[in-house]
C-alpha cells in the first residue's frame, strides 16, 4: 500500500552507450514493445494483488512474513519494468487504472476468503505468468539473432535482447518460487478450489491478451 503513496521516483542516470547493432526490424521492435507493456502491466497487477492480500491478512503473524517477502519481490519486478518502459519509450497500457483497481480488488477479495483462498489465487496467477514468461523467452531466443553488428556486419543477438532475457528468466524463476510457496501453504485446501483457480487463470489470460494490445 505504501507503494501507491510513493510515486516511484527512482531516477536512473543516463549513461552514453554506443549502439552495437543495426536497427531492429519493425516487427521485432513491435514485439519488444509489446513484451515490455504487458510485463509492466502484469507486475503492476501482481504488486497490487499482494497489496490487497497483505491488507486482508497481515494480522496473522504466521502469514505476514511470507506475504511480505513475495510482495517485496513483486515491487522489485514492477520497478524494473517501469524503468524499462521509460528507457525504451514504450507506451504503458491505457487500461492501467482498471488493472490497478481490478488487481487490488482481486487480492483483497481472495485475502478475505482466508489463507487458503489467497494462496489459491497466488497459485493460479503464478501458473499463468510462468507460462507467459516462458513463451516470451522462446520468442526472444528464436527471432532476434539476425540483426547485423555495425562494425563487422555479422548477424548476432544484441545485448538489448540478452539483458531482457536474463531479466525475464530471473523473474520467471521467482514467480515459480511463489507458486511453490503457495502450494506449500495449503492452496489446494481452498474451497471451491477449481472454481477459484480456473476463474483467476481465465481472468489473467484475458488481461494478458488485452494488455499486450492496448
Amino acid at each position: 500500500m505504501s507503494l501507491i503513496l510513493k510515486r516511484l521516483q527512482s531516477t536512473v542516470a543516463e549513461t552514453v552507450i554506443k549502439p552495437t547493432h543495426k536497427a531492429l526490424s519493425p516487427a521485432q521492435q513491435a514485439y519488444l514493445e509489446r513484451v515490455i507493456r504487458v510485463d509492466q502491466a502484469g507486475e503492476l497487477g501482481a504488486n497490487l494483488i499482494y497489496a490487497g492480500q497483505y491488507m486482508a491478512l497481515s494480522h496473522k503473524p504466521e502469514l505476514k512474513p511470507i506475504l511480505k517477502h513475495m510482495w517485496d519481490q513483486e515491487i522489485h519486478h514492477h520497478n524494473t519494468f517501469n524503468n524499462l518502459q521509460v528507457e525504451h519509450r514504450v507506451r504503458p497500457s491505457i487500461l492501467t487504472p482498471i488493472w490497478k483497481v481490478g488487481a487490488f480488488g482481486m487480492g483483497l477479495a481472495t485475502g478475505l476468503l482466508g489463507k487458503e483462498g489467497a494462496m489459491a489465487c497466488t497459485e493460479a496467477v503464478e501458473t499463468v505468468i510462468g507460462g507467459h514468461y516462458n513463451q516470451q523467452l522462446r520468442v526472444l531466443s528464436n527471432n532476434y539473432g539476425d540483426v547485423e553488428e555495425i562494425e563487422t556486419g555479422k548477424p548476432s543477438v544484441s545485448k538489448q535482447v540478452t539483458d531482457l532475457q536474463a531479466q525475464i528468466s530471473e523473474f520467471r524463476d521467482e514467480e515459480l518460487e511463489h507458486l511453490n510457496t503457495a502450494v506449500q501453504n495449503d492452496s489446494h485446501e481452498a474451497r471451491p478450489y477449481w472454481l477459484i483457480t480456473e476463474t483467476i487463470k481465465l481472468t489473467c489470460k484475458a488481461a494478458v491478451w488485452t494488455a499486450e494490445r492496448v
Binding site: I17, H21, P26, L32, E87, R89, V90, Q160
Partner: peptide
C-alpha cells in the same frame, strides 16, 4: 501499418 508504429528506443541498436 507496422511502419507507423513509433520506434522502440534502444541504446544498443541504431536509431531509425
Amino acid at each position: 501499418s507496422i511502419q507507423q508504429i513509433r520506434n522502440f528506443h534502444s541504446v544498443y541498436h541504431a536509431d531509425v
